[in-house]
Design a protein around this nucleic acid. Structure first.
Lengths: 417, 417
DNA sequence: GTAATATGTTTATCCATGGAACTAATAGGA
DNA sequence: TCCTATTAGTTCCATGGATAAACATATTAC
């Protein structure tokens, strides 16, 4: 809890009113009168708050739509488009880039590059990234968009909320001090651009990349995209590529544990008498359900696209069917354990698992219904769905994380004009 | 977020000041000047807040202790003793009762009864409980203590925050609507007492038992006792009696999942090819580490006290040593999975496991260091300790839960005098 | 055209914090 | 002993933001 002066009172109410407008359904935006009703504040206070939010460029009025009802028509209030943005960055195994979202979640600008990053030095990757950031920030500042923060998604174990990145097996990175590496990358950018650089843009980039830059696991951030898109509130998001990660979401909030390392399900024990994993333990989930293991079990090239397997399943090829059985049993055991521990009733399959959802569902459900206490003994119903958040979900989630934090915090600089 | 009027501002600051005083170390209580410094509020505001809290009976002044320092000595402020209390109730397998704690966590009154409850009807148990409540409330009201709420600890799966109790295997209870059963128990109490009843006390009991009564799993509540006693902030509390439960605590907050069912580790899969459990699945943790399984493996009577096993271990009896090996391996696998999923670095063993902590530690640690990713690859250090919270930890935790909720919420009735 | 109704603004008031001056209690030094 | 410096806590007035009621505005109903 923090000191509450009168300024905080104002900020709290600005924040309250804004988030109510932001959470309104698109087909039924709220008016000042609605807000006064909902919050219990007087109409006068709400009017004053809305005025402030409008002059800060955070809200717009729509044309009053004539209702079939007596009385003066209400003025619908909506979140302003294209005035404020957050930056979501992602460095992953085969691409890196940045995406800028405004308060409505719309993409204002982005820059992505396909590139195989394993065994690339962090400094090299960050040098590319800050160039992309510079481009995007240049475009946004020319449109006089206000930038409120940035977040970086990484495929590995990273400390919450500012790093370091402890380990990213698929990148071959270990103990990367993100703020540090980012700061030097910005310095190098400045030297690269020399006199061509716009000093104002460069200063903005430096400030965004060094002051309060958020860092988080890619799965946790991709899960935020899922929350925003489908209004899901509680689920486990499974992010399976080469490694397997997960995000735990309860009541719309990502649970990230003590350090930010929660959801590392790739090395859950499926069978203590199983084969030895690269990590040194026995019978880890990745030995059964990692992408390489799946493709190998199906008799396919481990580096091939997962769609080959989907096709093979549709043709009912025995090897593919056996592979699916192996994955759904092992992943089902691991997820049953997760559900018993964290108590959610929905699984969202992302990454390589997403296209396999329909194949995997029966086997997963069989494990869940037999192993989850809440299912067998309490009768809770479970759902398994596929993620539909598309490409660069980590970058989108990063930008959303910044927005969420700024909007939810009455002390954030969003309200300081 | 909730509407912030001027009254809320005041309440927030009352709450802020109070919690700073409550969290001060006992040997260095805070003064008004300290609070002004810490909060950033002016001395005038702090003085005014403290005056309100004192007249509400929430704070006391101690004698100014002369410091060896120039200037007027500060007046130490401490949480008032014995003026306000919360009620923590517990119904467990072999006892039930109630304990009242004041704001300092001291026991003001209690009433417990040993009783074998399995296969007792809920109505019977609740009838006993409300009698105990009536006794305690009578004593407290005669001392003019203000009662702010009540919470009930139950050994089973209960919905957060008001029930129902879905399943308590060890009591043989299922789908008990707690507010409902409690309400009828209070009615019956009124009839039992007849004209002997003090109407004011009866009204207080009815209000506490029906209006906002909290209900939670015993393990989650016992964990709160651990938080309060040892200032532990992040850990998994393992509550092993006949069944095995756990509570997940991160940063001082209990994580209870979507419904309040988180931490059900008794049926985590230890070995999918293992024996069939009573729940219907195979290789559940309870088959290896439940109290009955342990005692059987050690060649002891399953209903005997766990201390028999501790003694047998100290004598290095082969059967006991083998039993310990079985438990530490299976529990170690289950806890490794928990740690990978929820990211904490400390385990607290409670219930039957507490006296076995020293025997179990090496085996548990071996599993954790080999199976937890953060241990093998990031070098995180883990600790395993024994719970020392003693008897009726669930009841104490219940009372603490009420206090925590009341103290943390600026809108709670604590501040409404 | 007038009454009824709902939205939103203006104006005077209330309330909690802010700030500066003031009182209180101690140590140290002449 | 008395004066000064220092720290604690209070008093009193100013300020900022919410509140309440009156008012202006825009629509429907008759």
């Amino acid at each position: 809890m923090v000191r509450a002066g009168q300024r905080s009172l104002r900020d709290h109410n600005l924040c309250l009113v804004f988030s109510l407008i932001a959470s309104a359904p698109a087909d039924n935006p709220r008016s000042r009168a609605d807000l006064a009703e909902m919050t219990g504040l007087t109409k006068a206070t709400v009017s004053s708050l809305v005025t402030d939010l409008r002059t800060a460029g955070l809200l717009s009025e729509l044309e009053p739509v004539t209702p079939h009802r007596v009385g003066r028509p209400a003025v619908p209030l909506v979140v302003a488009e294209g005035t404020v943005a957050s930056l979501g960055m992602e460095i992953n195994v085969d691409f890196l880039g940045i995406r800028a979202l405004d308060l409505t979640g719309a993409i204002l600008a982005e820059s992505f590059e396909r590139r195989n990053l394993p065994d690339t030095e962090p400094a090299v990757a960050f040098a590319i990234l800050v160039h992309q950031v510079y481009d995007v920030v240049t475009r946004l500042t020319s449109d006089s968009v206000r930038l409120i923060g940035a977040c970086l998604a990484l495929p590995g174990i990273a400390d919450h909320p500012h790093g370091p990145l402890r380990l990213a097996p698929n990148l071959g990175w270990r103990d990367v001090d993100i703020p540090q590496v980012m700061a030097t990358a910005v310095d190098v950018l400045g030297q690269d651009l020399g006199t061509d650089a716009d000093p104002a843009v460069l200063a903005t980039v430096r400030s965004l990349m060094t002051d309060g830059l958020l860092v988080e696991n890619e799965a946790n951030l991709a899960a935020r995209t899922e929350i925003a898109k489908h209004q899901e509130k509680s689920f486990i998001y499974v992010s399976g590529e080469i490694g397997i990660g997960a995000a735990i979401v309860v009541d719309g909030r990502v649970f990230s544990g003590l350090h930010g390392w929660a959801g590392e399900i790739g090395h859950l024990v499926v069978d203590p008498r199983g084969p030895v994993c690269a990590c040194g333990a026995t019978g880890c989930l990745e030995m059964y359900a990692g992408k390489r293991a799946i493709m190998a079990a199906a008799g396919l090239d481990p580096d091939d696209c997962i769609d080959r397997l989907v096709e093979a399943c549709q043709r009912q090829e025995p090897a593919a069917v056996a592979a699916i059985a192996q994955v759904s049993e092992s992943l089902g055991i691991a997820l049953s354990n997760c559900i018993n521990i964290v108590d959610v009733n929905r699984i969202v399959l992302g990454g390589s698992f997403a296209p396999l959802t329909d194949c995997l569902r029966p086997g997963l459900m069989a494990q869940i219904t037999s192993r989850v206490l809440a299912s067998r003994l309490v009768g809770e119903e479970f759902e398994i769905g596929a993620s539909t958040t598309g490409c660069h979900a980590g970058a989108t989630g990063s930008a959303l994380a910044v927005l969420d934090q700024a909007v939810a915090d009455p002390a954030s600089k969003l309200w300081k004009v």
